[in-house]
Design a binder for these strands. Structure first.
Length: 704
DNA sequence: GAAATCATACTTTTT
DNA sequence: GTATGATTTC
């Protein structure tokens, strides 16, 4: 997986103490973190203080001191972070580390352990993994059935449902929060999902049914992965071995772990592992996923840990650090630290006030191109937004101007309907008991809706045999035409799962697509584009070692950007990054543009009302601002246009984000709106929305 | 009785 | 663009 690299001086220096890190350029703080010897350790690492370097150095130090790399566990927030760390460790500490150390997200590590030790729990190691969308699908299925049972059980047909029920995604979010925070449904719902309180009983019943169905279908959702890992600790036989499996556990981004994950660490610590947790409470931004800042705030007392602080920013220039320090200074509770920087660079961050969103897009492009002309390539610049669609208008503008970009976060590839269809079909190749997948795929057939799909699934899985084979010749009680269509689907799945194709994921995908492609083409007008998406997925699958692994990786580590699957074509081009702030965590660029710093965007109007949520939004802004090395632009549109029913054109004035306080603004230069765009429309060729703004301006000038 | 169709509302952040 | 709930069609 990792490229081989020449060992560096650090490795060849030999394992004598004190010389292990001789080749490293570390600050005193970083060295203290890397070489700490004793019990558990908390490294409070401010933004840009070189925490990855410190963590890598610690890994090298441990191995150099004689620790067995196979007994080191590295837990990171994303697989990408794990890969980077292991790669860097490999470069400096030798190949053995990357090959032998365990690394990945909590979920990926759980998956790996469960494939090996699942039977100790009575878990068939061939389970498939439900991502959150699949989980939502199964919850919807279960809820529908419960409702049918309730109304079919007689009595005056239940009161017409006038209330809108929680969306399946919301149910999944509730359930996940319940599990990860280990808090009962009856507490979680009123506190975090008050608008669902009326259906609390329905939710409880749905969750119970969901659990039963998950087990029957041999699937685990994300939360099950963690729960089952925890259960392994208690499993007779496997438990002792697993608890004592690691000597050192290094956890990155500890501020974004939840109660369940902290318990897993406690389990490992009880087995003798020494925990090193690295994180920054000022950058805790995953509260919505039940991450709890208390984990890092309470770590020293819970684990009797020593604390090392990293406060020297290696990333940002002093003026940027002064600004970001001022922004976070107003957060009420945190591990105290004062970041400073010894870097050169005197340019202050800029607050760019724009007339409206269109002007913001223009202003971004202008500054972007300025930096490009002055030598900062697009790939060293990033545009950061609170939510995926906050960049819609800018993307239009970029397309019109021919500026290439990749977007991370937001709407993801895997969420498109046709992609989910293919993935569901592939899951059936792996696991014919997966009801959610059956239900989805069957409904692709013309004339099959929820009710028919359910009947078919029920009949096919009844015998306990392979449902695919059961459906090849005789679909139960269906019109001849439908039965034939179901038979074709079943045949495709059986073929794809046949021994001749197993192990050749690419061929398996091809076989499934021979059935699926016509369905996709028939259902969607833009068939060409959608089939191209499927081509991408097929190409990625062809490169995987097996279909099962491919599907697990897809669930645990989905492609993060548009074009992540596409491979090299864009690689060597100079491409701008657009990212949600969440997806930008841990990354840095020379020049950073943060958009939409208006109340309602940052903080998001979804977060108002709850103090904790507001504080998380403050930290989110802090994360965004601290991604910049040399230049930072914060954009504030003053006016928003809302398009309603295609005709009405309402607008409203926005307030500058409340987090940009007077104290913070002392550290920025103010820039006005971008110059009004070129009066010649042909020369500037604005996108549709920007075009409207231009028309408005032209009209306004006529009225003067 | 079930599926297709229409109207309407709602769209954060992600392992 | 998509999911839901009500309505119409098969």
């Amino acid at each position: 997986m990792f490229a081989q690299t020449e060992p560096t001086a650090a490795l060849t220096a030999g394992p004598r103490r004190g010389e292990i890190l001789a080749g490293w350029r570390l600050t005193d703080e970083q060295r203290a973190a890397a070489t700490h010897d004793g019990g558990h350790l908390l490294v409070v690492a401010g933004a840009g203080t070189g925490k990855t370097t410190a963590l890598t150095a610690r890994l090298a130090h441990l191995v150099g001191s004689g620790c067995d790399p196979g007994r080191i566990l590295l837990l990171t927030f994303s697989r990408r972070a794990a890969a980077e760390l292991l790669q860097r460790a490999e470069a400096s500490a030798g190949h053995a580390v990357a090959r032998q150390a365990w690394g990945g997200t909590f979920h990926a590590v759980a998956n790996r352990l469960l494939r090996r030790h699942g039977p100790a729990l009575g878990l068939d190691p061939s389970f498939t993994v439900l991502d959150q969308g699949d989980a939502a699908g199964l919850l919807a299925l279960v809820r529908e059935e419960l409702a049918d049972v309730a109304s079919g059980a007689g009595g005056p047909t239940a009161q017409p449902r006038r209330r809108r029920r929680a969306k399946p995604e919301t149910m999944a979010a509730i359930l996940s929060r319940v599990v990860n925070s280990r808090t009962p449904v009856s507490t979680v719902v009123p506190r975090h999902f008050p608008w669902c309180t009326a259906e609390l009983d329905d939710l409880k019943a749905t969750f119970a049914g969901y659990t039963v169905r998950k087990r029957a279908a041999h699937v685990l959702d994300f939360d099950d992965l963690l729960l089952c890992w925890q259960a392994l600790f208690e499993a007779p036989g496997a438990g002792d071995e697993l608890r004592g499996r690691f000597d050192h556990v290094l956890v990155d981004e500890y501020q974004d772990t939840n109660a369940l994950q902290a318990d897993l660490l406690a389990g490992l610590a009880a087995g003798g592992a020494r925990i090193t947790a690295v994180g920054d409470d000022a950058q805790a931004i995953y509260g919505f996923r039940a991450a709890d800042v208390r984990n890092i705030l309470d770590f020293p007392s819970r684990f009797q840990a020593d604390i090392v602080r990293l406060e020297q920013s290696q990333r940002s220039t002093p003026p940027l650090v002064a600004f970001t320090n001022a922004v976070i200074a107003e957060a009420p509770e945190r591990h105290e630290k004062q970041l400073w920087s010894a870097r050169s660079g005197a340019a202050r961050p800029a607050l760019v006030t724009c007339a409206d969103e269109g002007a913001q897009s223009a202003a971004v492009c202008e500054r972007l191109l300025n930096h490009l002309e002055r030598g900062t390539p697009l790939r060293s610049q990033a545009v950061l937004v609170r939510t995926g669609h906050h960049s819609d208008l800018l993307e239009l503008e970029l397309s019109v101007r021919g500026i290439p970009y990749v977007k991370y976060g937001g709407l993801r590839f895997l969420e498109a309907a046709h992609v989910k269809d293919l993935v569901a079909a592939l899951r059936l190749v792996e696991n014919p008991r997966d009801e959610v997948a059956w239900s989805r795929v069957l409904q692709l057939i013309d004339g099959v809706g929820p009710a028919t799909a359910r009947r078919v699934v029920l009949a096919a899985t009844a015998g306990g045999g392979d449902a695919r084979i059961a459906l090849v010749d005789r679909a139960p009680s269906l019109a001849a035409g439908l039965a034939a269509a179901v038979g074709q689907l079943a045949t495709a799945l059986v073929d794809a799962a046949s021994p001749a194709l197993v192990g050749r994921a690419g061929a398996q995908v091809d076989r499934v697509r021979r059935w699926l492609d016509p369905q996709v083409a028939a259902r969607h007008g833009d068939a060409a584009a959608r089939l191209a998406d499927l081509d991408q997925l097929a190409a990625a699958a062809a490169g995987a070692s097996s279909l099962g692994r491919f599907l697990v990786e897809l669930a645990l580590d989905p492609p993060a950007s548009t074009g992540d699957l596409a491979g090299p074509p864009l690689r060597d081009d100079d491409v701008l990054t657009i990212s949600t702030i969440h997806s930008a965590k841990g990354l840095e660029w020379d020049v950073v543009h943060v958009l939409h710093l208006a109340d309602g965007c940052v903080p998001s109007d979804m977060a108002t009302g709850d103090d904790a949520a507001i504080e998380e939004e403050r930290r989110l802004l802090y994360v965004a601002l601290t991604r910049a090395r040399d230049a930072l632009y914060a954009y504030v549109p003053l006016r928003y246009h809302h398009h309603r029913r295609g005709r009405d054109d309402a607008h409203g004035y926005a307030q500058r984000s409340r987090f940009l306080t007077p104290a913070a603004l002392e550290h920025v230069d103010h820039q006005g709106a971008a110059p009004v765009s070129d009066p010649d429309p042909a020369a500037s060729a604005p996108g549709p929305a920007a075009g409207l703004a231009a028309v408005d301006r032209r009209l306004a000038s006529l009225f003067e």
